[in-house]
C-alpha cells in the first residue's frame, strides 16, 4: 500500500493528468481544422480585447482622423496608402482598426447574451426537469411557443418594443443592454430544453436516489449532483450559441436596431459600408464582413468538434 496518501492532496495535478490523457484532448490534437479554428478564435479574442492598445489607429479619436484620407482603398491597390492596410472609410478612419474595435463590441454583446441565456435557460431547465408537474408544464409550454418563432424575430420584437417604451433620448446609452436582453431572451429555450431533458434522465439515475435516501436536500442535489452532470451538452450549445449571438447582433445592427453608429460593431460597420458598395468602395463593407464570417466560422467549427468529441458514438 505504498500509494496511500492523504486524500485530497495533489488534486490539480490529478485533474491536469486526466485532461491530457482524455479522449477530448486526443481528438483535439488529431484535428488540424479544429486547432486552426481554435487559433483563429484565440487571435480574434486577443485582438478584440487589446484593440485600444494594439490597433494602428484610434478610429474614435477625432483628432487623429483626417478627412483627406477618406475612402482610400487597401494598401496593395494603386491608390492605397501603406498607413491604412485595409483602406479607410468615408470619414478617413482606418478600416483595419475599426474592425478590431467592432469585433470587440460584437464579442462583448455575444458573450453577454450567451451568459444571459445560459443562466436563464439552465436555471429554468433544472427547475423544470426536477420539479415536474405544473411548473414544468408551464415553462415548457412557454418554451414551445417561443421555439415556434425564430430567435431573430423574437430579438427584433423585444428590441422594437423596448425602443418604443424607453425614452428616445436614452436609446443610445441603453442600446447595449437592450440588445443583450433581446438576444439573451431569444436564446434561453435551447438550454432549458436540453438541461431539462438531461435532468429528467439524471434525476432517475440511482446516484440521485442514493442522495435522497441519505437525506440530502433538493437544492443541494440539484446543484452538487445534477448540475455537474448536465454541463457537457450545455457547453456545446453555448459555443454554437456564441456564433448565433454574434450573427444575431450583426443582423440587428445591420437592420439599424442594434448598437448605435457611435460605437459600431461589425454589423454596424457592414451596414454603414453597404451604402458605398455601389460607388465602388467595396472594402468598407467587405472587410468587416469577412472578419465576421471568419470569427463565426471558427467558433462554429469549435462547437462542431466539441459536440462530436463529447459524443463519441457520432464518429
Amino acid at each position: 500500500m505504498a500509494e496511500i496518501q492523504p486524500a485530497g492532496s495533489n488534486r490539480v495535478g490529478d485533474r491536469l493528468r486526466r485532461a491530457i490523457e482524455s479522449d477530448i484532448w486526443f481528438s483535439f490534437t488529431r484535428s488540424p481544422v479544429t486547432m486552426l479554428s481554435a487559433a483563429v478564435t484565440a487571435i480574434a479574442f486577443l485582438a478584440a480585447l487589446f484593440a485600444p492598445w494594439i490597433a494602428p489607429h484610434d478610429p474614435f479619436d477625432l483628432a487623429s482622423i483626417d478627412l483627406l484620407d477618406a475612402s482610400l482603398p487597401p494598401a496593395w491597390m494603386t491608390d492605397g496608402d501603406p498607413r491604412f492596410l485595409l483602406g479607410t472609410d468615408d470619414q478617413g478612419r482606418d478600416v483595419f482598426s475599426t474592425i478590431m474595435f467592432g469585433a470587440r463590441i460584437s464579442l462583448v454583446v455575444g458573450f453577454a447574451s450567451v451568459l444571459f441565456s445560459l443562466v436563464l435557460g439552465v436555471g429554468l431547465g433544472l427547475v423544470s426537469g426536477y420539479a415536474g408537474g405544473r411548473l414544468d408544464a408551464f415553462i415548457m409550454r412557454v418554451a414551445d411557443v417561443q421555439l415556434s418563432f425564430p430567435a431573430i424575430l423574437i430579438a427584433l420584437l423585444i428590441d422594437g418594443v423596448a425602443r418604443s417604451v424607453l425614452p428616445r433620448d436614452h436609446h443610445d446609452e441603453l442600446a447595449f443592454y437592450v440588445l443583450v436582453f433581446a438576444i439573451g431572451v431569444s436564446g434561453w429555450v435551447q438550454y432549458a430544453r436540453t438541461v431539462r431533458g438531461s435532468t429528467l434522465v439524471e434525476k432517475n439515475k440511482e446516484y440521485v436516489q442514493a442522495a435522497r435516501v441519505i437525506g440530502i436536500r433538493r437544492s443541494t442535489i440539484l446543484l452538487r449532483h445534477i448540475l455537474p452532470n448536465v454541463t457537457g451538452p450545455v457547453l456545446v450549445i453555448a459555443t454554437i450559441h456564441l456564433a448565433v449571438a454574434i450573427i444575431t447582433e450583426a443582423t440587428l445592427s445591420f437592420l439599424g436596431v442594434g448598437v448605435p453608429p457611435t460605437t459600431p460593431s461589425l454589423g454596424t460597420l457592414i451596414r454603414v459600408g453597404n451604402d458605398f458598395l455601389f460607388s465602388g468602395d467595396w472594402w468598407i463593407t467587405i472587410f468587416p464582413g469577412l472578419a465576421l464570417v471568419v470569427l463565426v466560422l471558427a467558433v462554429n467549427l469549435l462547437g462542431d468538434w466539441l459536440r462530436d468529441a463529447l459524443n463519441p458514438k457520432l464518429r
Binding site: A243, T251, G267, I286, V296, L297
Partner: peptide, 22 residues
C-alpha cells in the same frame, strides 16, 4: 454547410449584389 451557417443572411445578400449586380 458550416460556411453556410456561418454566413449571416445579409452578408450573403451583399456579396451577391457585389458580384452579380455591381
Amino acid at each position: 454547410s458550416l460556411i453556410g451557417i456561418s454566413l449571416p443572411t445579409f452578408l450573403i445578400g451583399i456579396l451577391l449584389i457585389l458580384f452579380f449586380g455591381v
